[in-house]
């Protein structure tokens, strides 16, 4: 069964309507159109996948992310999380335990004033026993490699460490899926690497589905599958190889190719024989050196003759 299955979901942010005002029906319609953040999104995610969602600011990525643990529910269409309809209020807590979210600003999502209490917050909310809470908290801290900071104030941590604590807070609830909503946007390269390495490990070792919303194209190269959103719709989907083969489209949607793909494209434009959809250094290296080798070979054979 798919962990996430969305069927033509649309969402509009509420627009203030003045019932007395007769004027400007057109403007209101316009406003309503502008408030439409999602427009018929259909997609499926299988358990254990590492997914990247790309798209420019305002493309609807974050709105979609908020649907995933029922912070908002679709105005049209249906979204199933692990078989549960997000509109089913009785399943609300199960959905939120199944899908955990890590947000962008580390300071605005930490509630506790000591690291271990922060990680415990979710388990406390669902009424777990004291013993289970402690066990869960320390296991989660161990998994994100923050055990030694258990008794420290979050204010004293670096950005990358704060985000790892946030991941631990989600992890303590034993989720099947973790959604990262631009969680590395405010971090420096080292912090970004810390967080990405942590979630990659969770994905690989524990089979937790990861959905990463990001502006870093390099991160997307390593995903299993990519969705590109624009204007509230899924405009492209596929493996990194498929997505980054469609070079023109990527740029039309306000994104940028990873540097590796940019180089492949530049070389190809200069007449070199480089295949489309290069995603790793090895592939590009092979493509460049293979040509050299074949040329060298022909030279050698020519020389022999």
């Amino acid at each position: 069964m798919e962990i996430i299955k969305s069927e033509k979901i649309s969402y509009s942010y509420p627009v203030f309507e003045d019932p007395d005002s007769q004027e400007n029906k057109e403007l209101l319609e316009k406003k309503k159109e502008a408030a439409k953040a999602l427009d018929g999104v259909s997609l499926e995610v299988r358990p254990g996948q590492f997914i990247c969602i790309l798209g420019r600011n305002g493309s609807g990525k974050s709105t979609f992310a908020k649907h995933l643990n029922a912070l908002i529910t679709p105005t049209e269409g249906t979204l199933w999380i692990d078989g549960m309809d997000t509109k089913d209020e009785e399943k609300l807590w199960d959905i939120r335990r199944t899908v955990g979210m890590v947000f962008q600003n580390p300071d605005n999502q930490i509630i506790g004033s000591i690291v271990d209490e922060e990680v415990a917050f979710g388990l406390e909310n669902i009424g777990a026993s004291t013993r289970d809470i402690r066990k869960g908290v320390y296991k989660a801290l161990e998994e994100v490699n923050m055990r030694e900071y258990a008794k420290v104030s979050p204010n004293k941590l670096s950005g990358g460490q704060k985000q790892r604590v946030a991941v631990a807070g989600v992890l303590a609830m034993n989720p099947k899926c973790i959604v990262l909503d631009e969680s590395t946007a405010m971090l420096d390269p080292r912090g970004r690497k810390e967080v990405m390495d942590t979630v990659k490990k969770l994905n690989k070792d524990d089979g937790i589905t990861i959905i990463s919303i990001t502006h870093y194209m390099e991160e997307a190269l390593e995903a299993d599958y990519i969705f590109v959103m624009d204007n509230g719709q899924v405009r492209m989907q596929g493996t990194p190889r498929e997505i980054f083969s469609r070079e023109e489209e990527i740029e039309e949607l306000g994104l940028k190719l990873p540097q590796l793909c940019q180089l492949a494209k530049a070389l190809r434009n200069k007449g070199m024989d480089i295949p489309m959809g290069i995603t790793t250094e090895e592939e590009l290296k092979d493509a460049i050196t293979k040509r050299q080798i074949s040329e060298n070979d022909s030279e050698i054979t020519a020389g022999e003759k």
Binding site: N57, L255, K256
Partner: peptide, 10 residues
């Protein structure tokens, strides 16, 4: 450029 999308950054 912190927090902007690729196009905004450029």
């Amino acid at each position: 450029t912190a927090g902007l999308d690729p196009k905004g950054k450029t």
